[in-house]
Design a protein around this nucleic acid. Sequence first.
DNA 1: TCTGGGGTCCTAGGACCC
DNA 2: TCTGGGGTCCTAGGACCC
Length: 453
Amino acid sequence: MNDIFALIDCNNFYVSCERVFNPKLENVPVAVLSNNDGVIIARSNEVKKLGIKMGTPAFKCRDIIEKNNIKIFSSNYVLYGDMSSRVMMTLAQFTDDIEVYSIDEAFLSLKEREDEIAQRFVFDEKNDEKKFKDRAGRIGMETSFALFGREIRKTIKKWTGIPVSVGIARTKTLSKIANELVKKDTEYNGVLDISNLTDKQIDEYLEKISIEDVWGIGFRTAPMLRAHGFYTAKDLKYVDDRWVRKLLHITGLRTVHELRGISCIAFENERKPQQTLASTRSFGRPILSLKELKEAVSTYAIQAAERLREQKLIAPFMNVFIHTNYFNENQARYNNSLGVQFSQPTNDTRVLIKEACRIIDKIYKPGYLYKKAGIILFNLMPETQIQLNLFHAYEQDKKAARLMKAVDKINDQNGRNTILFAAAGIKKPWKMNSRIVSKRYTTRWNEIIEAKI
DNA sequence: TCTGGGGTCCTAGGACCC
DNA sequence: TCTGGGGTCCTAGGACCC
């Protein structure tokens, strides 16, 4: 049986999360900023229309923000993460074949359920006013898959308040494209199924997608392809295989085949174990002193260790880096990093802090204004896979594990930072900016929304 | 003054071995 | 000391994604 995929993608996800709890934000321009209030990472349609691009530094569009009264928010990942899991749980009501691809999108594999959906969702002239209209203006009845997509969309909106778009096609790449078309054109009312179309009909859609909007073609290869005369998804579809293999390698070839309707990017129902874990952050203001730098990396080490333990993972390697501001050309630059292999794989906060500070001692150079630091853990493995080395003190290890477990439990029950590690500092004057953050409406009792009658 | 954070996969090239 | 093919393993860096 042929593959068939539905891509469910939340519209302007972070903005939509803010809107769910603040109806005044409907129909007005809204944008959400990255960590440290640095760049714009989510835009409402109104903001997109104003021409503000994804990733624009906030300070560079201050004028346009003020002039158009754009509502700006710092990112509130606690809220977005919780809203994401609500959306995914709603999707799980429809099928088990879900691949959660990112915080705001998921693929469904429908091939096992083609018959069932065809029976359950039948177009009815009287009740279903929405008729399928394609790019060429042809009118037809909506397919069963499209009606199924509408049902999903309606339910997610009702249960979570989040609007989503649905694209349905024979490959993941084509379902991405169908989804993009939905977002571009309100005529589709949120759902487009191109799974049943002929090659020629699909080409009419592919012509509307410019090459840099194809999933897998990034900002580096797009200009190269344009220079060779390929401008749209359709152009890319008919490129010579050998040429693609040579210039875009195996990943590019897969993309081209996917455009042709040959599914080669696998559906991944089960989450793969994580291989690396990073904890990095820019500072709210530059750091000059060794002491503060150590506080910062200790803070990141604590966070990384917590996340390791949450997933019952241990790490054998760690890398620590520091650097000055890349953007400031008038300032002396310095960047450096150093790795360490632990005597045995660990998720003990104290070990991570100790080693991270030791590395900072080695790579820190006085006189520079540091802007960012971070730690990255590699080759993660399950806790149960630990290989004892020759000098390994097993009892001591069990004790350490119990201690960490107790710390996690206390912080979990009584709020983060109930138990602190002194190494991380208390005041943290360097911590990131987050000036205009909304409430954690769904995860904190004291920040829950109030209804006034 | 102010420019995010966290991931994956692939390739080229070096080191090493037979 | 040089000649040579063929293989594996590891790492750094590039490209991409959201």
